[in-house]
Simulated scan of single mutants.
Amino acid sequence: MSDSAGKLSRRARLVGGNRMELLLFRLRGKQLYGINVFKVKEIIPCPPLTAIPNHNPIVRGVAHVRDGTISIIDMGMAIRQPAMENPRTHVVIITEYNRRIQGFLVQAVDRIINVDWADVHPPPEGVGRNNYLSAVTEVKGELIEIIDVEKIIDTVNPIEGRISEGVIGEQIRAVAPRYHILLVDDSSVARHQVERCLDEIGIQRTSLSNGKEALEFLENLIQEGIDINQEFLMLISDIEMPEMDGYTLTAKIKRHPQMQTLPVLLHSSLSGIFNEAMVKKVGADYFLAKYDADELANHVLDRIRQLEGIPQDA
């Protein structure tokens, strides 16, 4: 087995077991921060940076990396710390999020750890709505703060989240309010993007922030005598979430006799061959890389057309 195939196999076992790999790094002082290893393309010494006019101040410049030019974001500034001094003495984590490649300037990379999503928790309520964290965990008594990278990227280059004119037909608009979607995503930025899309369609929605919460919500509805498969048009779920990831949530839904026909769309900033394999493994009905409002809308609209017998072009 090749090294790359071996890594994919090992990571598939991790994710399938509700586990993840975190790349830990430091900014200032002893505090450790983490991001998912799956988002990391490579780690390099900070290359020469070229300043760009009228840029967001957290973007320290652009750099030529491999065959392209990418923005280099000061991770410390992004989470409201002072700017990193002497960038060339630090390292850059090259990542891919939401179909975009960017680099994050950090002081130093520490190590990679494996953690169970059950041991990863939402940020404490006291940190406020404007915090930069997506989750926290603890390893050997040391607190790890997991960065909400989607939130940082949105401050630098916000995604245009509106659906294009003509995507939603009048027949769909007329019947959309009859339907209800369950949305699960731990990132407030990503959740609001999807909510705007669903609101444009006119469909009802319920939003939750992690897989454990979603599963308990569905189980409670079943106990109340509600038919989940009739109640919701589909479930749209992120993959990376504290408490329980989207893969595990999907697998549990598809094994549950009263939920198994509920369509599941996994909607993630993770992309690539690995995800295609995992989508099949856990039984998800669809996978969509974040974020394109028209693509997401079309998945929802196609499901409504199927149930209503509406032609594809209507």
Rank of each mutant, 00 (worst) to 15 (best):
P123W: 04
S2N: 14
V65F: 11
N229F: 05
D185Y: 07
S9H: 12
P48M: 05
G202P: 04
P177I: 06
D227N: 13
Q223S: 11
E243F: 00
E240N: 08
I273D: 15
I72H: 08
P158V: 02
A190P: 04
P123I: 07
S269F: 09
H55Y: 10
G246Y: 03
I172Y: 01
M20C: 14
D74M: 03
T89P: 01
V136S: 00
R80F: 10
A293K: 10
A12I: 10
L215V: 02
M77E: 14
L8Y: 00
Q306G: 02
Y132M: 10
T261K: 12
D3W: 00
D154S: 14
Q258Y: 05
E231S: 12
I304W: 13
R111I: 07
G309N: 08
E213P: 08
E224T: 09
R162F: 10
G272T: 08
E224K: 12
I73L: 02
L32F: 01
C197T: 13
H192M: 11
A83S: 06
D186R: 00
G141Q: 03
V40F: 09
I73V: 15
I152G: 06
M20F: 03
E145Q: 14
L218H: 08
Y33F: 14
S187R: 02
R13F: 04
A314T: 15
I35G: 04
G128K: 03
A51S: 15
A118P: 00
D148I: 06
I52M: 12
L23T: 13
L208D: 08
E145H: 05
A83E: 10
E150L: 04
D185G: 06
A190E: 01
N98A: 07
I101P: 00
S209D: 02
V136F: 00
N98W: 06
I152Q: 07
K41P: 01
E195G: 01
C46S: 13
G34D: 10
R129Y: 13
N275A: 08
H256V: 09
I101F: 08
L183Y: 11
S188Q: 09
V92S: 13
Q312D: 14
I304Q: 06
E216L: 12
V189A: 03
S71Y: 07
F38Q: 12
I72A: 11
Q193H: 13
I113K: 04
S207C: 14
V264D: 03
I73S: 02
F287I: 08
G16D: 11
I152C: 06
G34A: 12
P124M: 05
D74R: 08
N130S: 12
E160A: 03
W117E: 13
A176I: 04
V175F: 02
T155C: 02
M234R: 05
I146C: 07
G16Y: 03
H64W: 05
R80Q: 10
I201E: 09
E308D: 11
R28L: 15
K151M: 06
K254L: 13
A214Q: 01
V139F: 01
I253H: 00
Q230H: 11
I72M: 01
L266M: 15
H64D: 13
M77W: 00
T261H: 12
P82V: 11
V189Q: 01
I168A: 06
N157K: 05
Y291P: 15
L143K: 09
I203F: 04
L49P: 13
L307P: 00
L22N: 10
G68I: 02
E138N: 13
I239G: 03
R305A: 05
S134Q: 10
N275E: 15
E42I: 09
S207H: 07
N36G: 12
I94W: 09
Q312Y: 15
R100L: 11
R129S: 10
